Simulated assay, not measured.
Amino acid sequence: MITFGYADTPFGQIHHASCGTGDPVLLLHQTPRSWDEYREVLPLLGRTRRAIAMDTLGFGNSAPPPSHSIEAYAAGVLALMDALGLREAAVAGHHTGGVVALEVAASAPERVSRLVLSSTPLVDEESRLRRKDRPPIDAARERPDGSHLAELWNARAPYYPWRLLNRFVRDALTVLPEVERGHEAVGAYRMEERTGLVRCPVLLVGASGDPFALPELARLAAYFPGSTQTVIEGGVIPLEHQAAEFATVVAEFLRS
């Protein structure tokens, strides 16, 4: 059974969902999602450990961050760990959540036992320059006729199984008009300066049907020469579509 709670932190309350008992694994979602991205994963990982999916600061039902930056999001993760009494945890993130997870492991290596980067972009100088002129991904201006709902839906429709789009649009509506801020935070992050600070074992997970993150898997792996890599066949951008496969590879990595 999934249980829900709010943790008091210096940033305000952080919403989280959890399942199971044992060694903790903290799950971080992509932009502009919420803990709901891990709805199917929580009971699977919760069979053998305490699986916790949080709403990143500024998303879902968590308090706003002091700034929309990867560093601020990561500080929120550590604040939640403090509030829950977690001295150490495995941390897994998907897309933006992977970038945040990396910063958590870089800024507090003693608190991260294992790191899982799922469909995580490599944000180096080349990437920052490319993102600088890229059109917004999810930006939509609210309109009285509700056409922004279709705009959010249609922007992701080429990459999402349609039954998952309701969940995406619901999460995106929660953070309008700041729906793009998480993507902007990724584009400003200097990942290449932080990867060398990670001290724990790393698993890199790719999805065969992700046209954006999969091509960067090999370049990202070069920054983690001792890492384990796997590609989920049939996986796409939304993690829900590959929940069982994702939970299996993460569970195996955490057991190894």
Score class of each variant (00 low, 15 high):
Arg114Trp: 04
Lys132Asp: 10
Val123Leu: 14
Arg131Thr: 03
Asp124Gly: 09
Val123Phe: 01
Glu125Asp: 14
Leu117Pro: 00
Val116His: 05
Val123Gln: 06
Pro136Asn: 09
Pro121Val: 04
Arg131Pro: 00
Ile137Trp: 06
Ser118Asp: 11
Leu115His: 03
Arg143Pro: 00
Arg141Cys: 03
Arg130Met: 11
Ser119Asn: 15
Pro121Arg: 03
Ala139Trp: 07
Glu125Phe: 02
Arg143Ala: 12
Glu142Thr: 13
Asp124Ala: 07
Glu126Tyr: 09
Ser118Cys: 13
Arg114Leu: 04
Asp133Leu: 12
Lys132Ala: 15
Glu125Arg: 10
Arg134Gln: 13
Ala139Asn: 01
Pro144Trp: 12
Leu122Asp: 03
Ser113Arg: 15
Ser118Met: 08
Thr120Gln: 07
Asp124Lys: 07
Ser118Asn: 09
Pro121Gln: 02
Asp133Glu: 12
Val112Ala: 04
Arg130Leu: 14
Arg143Met: 09
Leu129Arg: 15
Lys132Gln: 14
Pro135Lys: 08
Arg130Asp: 10
Pro144Ser: 13
Pro136Thr: 13
Arg141Asn: 07
Leu117Trp: 07
Val116Trp: 02
Ile137Thr: 14
Leu117Thr: 01
Arg128Ser: 05
Pro144Thr: 11
Glu142Val: 15
Asp124Glu: 01
Glu142Ser: 10
Arg130Lys: 14
Val116Asn: 02
Leu115Ser: 05
Glu142Leu: 08
Glu126Gly: 11
Pro144Asn: 12
Arg128Thr: 07
Glu126Ile: 11
Leu115Phe: 03
Ile137Met: 09
Ser127Cys: 09
Ala140Ile: 01
Arg141Ile: 13
Arg131Gly: 12
Glu142His: 08
Val123Cys: 07
Asp138Glu: 10
Ser113Lys: 13
Leu129Gln: 15
Asp138Leu: 13
Leu129His: 14
Glu126His: 13
Arg114Asp: 08
Glu125Ala: 15
Ser127Tyr: 14
Val123Thr: 10
Ala139Asp: 08
Glu125Trp: 04
Glu126Arg: 15
Pro144His: 11
Asp124Asn: 13
Arg134Val: 01
Pro121Thr: 08
Arg141Tyr: 05
Pro121Asn: 04
Leu117Tyr: 08
Ala140Leu: 02
Leu129Ile: 12
Arg134Met: 12
Ala139Lys: 12
Val123His: 00
Pro135Asn: 06
Glu125Lys: 06
